[in-house]
């Protein structure tokens, strides 16, 4: 207790229940430009800083709600739930990590898949939930993604995936590595059927996710400033023992090196992706 509180008369003391005039979370700060932002305005702006256009991380569900038309959304694969087959335990049990992630995100694993429409074009859309164990890919992410691919094949509608992931989930060890082959194998079939797949790489997309489903789009799009790569920058720095070039593994760097087709601002994503899909599927310009 501070000296100031001690000398206050008892009637003025707060008795441990702080009275705030401003509720928590009304204001927030852009980590990049330090601008103080009104939370509600930031949400309306799809978590993109209105001052500097910094693309902040966005939850999977909010992402899909912002991307898909409001009507006729159907979630796919939500009945697929994680199990701890290997009884994995590091400093914590995998089971406890799963429970904790579920409590803090409200999701049961790191991928949300929905069938719906984007500007009236039917699609299957997937989004990674980065707050769920770093968006890592294990059995559930792999299975839900493949169910999404199979739904796209069943209805003959395009697939869009927003990735945000640290890579394969270590707690599922080899099983998560095999999800790379599983998702890629499903995408091979989608391609054979001539159904378009657009991959949108968002911050960050690394490791086993970038080395499988995220770089296999017919068109690969990145959000501005996203960290995208196979190995993490720290691992590379330790290996090559030299300073990494400016902007290394960022979207703009990838565009320059020919690794992606384009960079698209999140606020224009609906328009741009639907416009691309309409052309690929020989549809008129979306309304």
């Amino acid at each position: 207790m501070s000296w100031f509180k001690k000398i206050l008369p008892s009637g003025i003391k707060s008795n441990g229940s702080p009275r705030r005039t401003v509720p928590e979370g009304v204001w927030t700060k852009c980590v990049k430009c330090n601008a103080v932002l009104y939370r509600a305005e930031l949400e309306r702006n799809l978590e993109v800083c209105p001052k500097c256009s910094n693309h902040m991380r966005i939850s999977a569900r909010v992402r899909l709600q912002g991307f898909l038309d409001e009507d006729d959304r159907v979630e796919i694969g939500q009945h697929i739930k994680p199990v701890d087959k290997l009884k994995f335990r590091d400093s914590k049990k995998y089971k406890d990590r799963l429970n904790q992630a579920a409590r803090s995100t409200g999701e049961s694993d790191a991928l949300v898949v929905m069938r719906g429409q984007v500007r009236a074009l039917p699609v299957v859309a997937c989004a990674f939930e980065f707050s769920f164990m770093g968006g890592s890919m294990g059995s559930v992410v792999g299975e839900r993604f493949v169910l999404g691919v199979e739904t796209a094949m069943e209805y003959r509608i395009p697939l869009v995936c927003f990735s945000a992931s640290g890579g394969a989930r270590m707690q599922e060890a080899i099983v998560s590595l095999m999800q790379m082959a599983k998702t890629s194998s499903a995408l091979a079939r989608l391609k054979q059927q001539g159904i378009p797949y657009i991959s949108v790489l968002t911050d960050p997309t690394m490791g086993g996710v970038s080395a499988s489903l995220a770089t296999l789009g017919d068109i690969n799009i990145a959000e501005p400033g996203a960290l995208i790569g196979f190995a993490g920058p720290r691992v590379i720095e330790q290996t090559v023992r030299e300073t990494l070039p400016e902007g290394f593994q960022r979207s703009e760097f990838l565009l320059e090196h020919g690794d992606i087709d384009m960079i698209v601002d999140r606020r224009e994503m609906r328009e741009r992706v639907s416009s691309l899909l309409a052309k690929l599927t020989h549809q008129p310009v979306p309304a």
Partner: peptide, 16 residues
């Protein structure tokens, strides 16, 4: 895990 490897698309090469 190297600079050139990333520039030339290590992820895409594996995925493909």
């Amino acid at each position: 895990p190297g600079i050139g490897a990333e520039e030339r698309g290590q992820s895409e090469a594996i995925a493909k």
